[in-house]
Write a protein that binds this DNA or RNA. Structure first.
Lengths: 210, 210
DNA sequence: GCTGAAGCGGAAACTGATTCCGTATTAACC
DNA sequence: GGTTAATACGGAATCAGTTTCCGCTTCAGC
């Protein structure tokens, strides 16, 4: 986790071995307040105007200056990640749950549709993920890094059971799904249909690369 | 074909019935020259810097002012369409050829991979298609409108032969393929693999919506 | 050659991102 | 409760790119 601005703990960590160092002073309370309002504001603005909403809009809603936004979150993706954190965690947990309660293919399928819903539902997220905009550089790698383990697990289990081909990686899948979630006419329903098609392709063992 | 700035013919069309009208004067030769250099320059810049390259870059290479770019091509997508015209035509022709020389499923499959290559190879095109940027608004609809007929034909033929499910439209497919062509690690090879997966899903009749 | 319509160039206005720095606030220490 | 240095703040300034606009130039038609 390389979150630039997350809260740390309140306690200043005691100085390292040997070197005589002044204990770092505690984080300022107004900074903490601002960071909180910023996160709240961002969540709201992202939901209504998308993750690429102008920085000023977030700053205004949070009642701070733009400078404060950039100080806490030097790049846009830091802010997006901070806001999405919990939802991503929930996604991971659900993957683990499905894995342990469902048959291997069903678990994978259900989870992919759940993930599709997650990505397709966050305004501008899918587009940002593939925009190539340096402001969002950190996003794809963050999601991949977080989600990869669960997906690998589900994928391996289903492949071992012979339910799906084994020449597609978790990375491939996560990226493809997110691409199919880019909004357009048809809304999330379109994305779900295309993901279903992809999953059907996954089940087609006959054309597997060897 | 709703190309805003394409060449028209040299001859001013004679006036309509009844109304006495001064014959419109011929298009100025310098304007034609500029339009040509603009198209040449755009083709080059699009190839090297992507379809979202700054207007100034194109203007400079063409040896004209930015104003001239905007006069001929009020929105970016007009210019992109003008540049892609021939390649799209070629794509359509190839679809017709494949249709008449190949077995139905093979024709569809080959064509989709050919289309994948086309989209994945034009710098920034796939991203622009799904960017939602108003500057590119016209692009998706142009491509859809041009390509839809051939794809519908191939799709129908394969569906009639029972080779593929019939609950997926040409529109669905074209869009999905273009989404999977958005560049990233793995290059066009990734796109081709994912399109192959999608096609495999298409062949899976068992889960077809009824 | 004249003339006015058509077209030109590039400066100006605008939009949003990002940096910067003088000022305000705070934690720590007395 | 006062002092001080570190920290954080706000928003003006800067920057990059798009888009508009208008005085000047060039061309087609005569």
């Amino acid at each position: 986790m390389t979150l630039a601005a997350s809260g740390e703990t309140d306690e200043p960590s005691s100085a390292g071995a040997g070197v005589v160092e002044r204990a770092p002073r505690r984080k300022r309370s107004d900074a903490k307040r601002n960071l909180d309002s910023l996160l709240d504001a961002a969540k709201e603005v992202f939901a209504s105007s998308g993750v690429d909403a102008p920085a000023k809009e977030i700053a205004d809603l949070a009642g701070v200056g733009v400078g404060t936004v950039y100080r806490h979150f030097p790049v846009r993706s830091d802010l997006v990640i901070a806001v999405l954190q919990h939802e991503v965690d929930a996604c991971i947990e659900e993957g683990e749950t499905l894995s342990s309660t469902e048959e291997s293919l069903a678990a994978l399928t259900k989870w992919l549709h759940r993930y599709t819903d997650f990505v397709a539902t966050k305004r501008g997220l899918a587009a940002a993920l593939h925009s190539g905009d340096p402001a969002f550089e950190g996003l794809p790698s963050y999601l991949l890094q977080r989600l990869d383990p669960v997906v690998v697990m589900m994928l391996d289990r289903a492949a071992a059971a012979g339910e799906i081909r084994s020449d597609v990686t978790a990375n491939d899948l996560l990226r493809a799904v997110a691409q199919l979630c880019i909004p357009g006419p048809g809304g999330p329903a379109y994305s779900q249909r295309m993901v279903a098609l992809l999953v059907d392709g996954l089940r087609n063992v006959s054309t597997e690369a060897r």
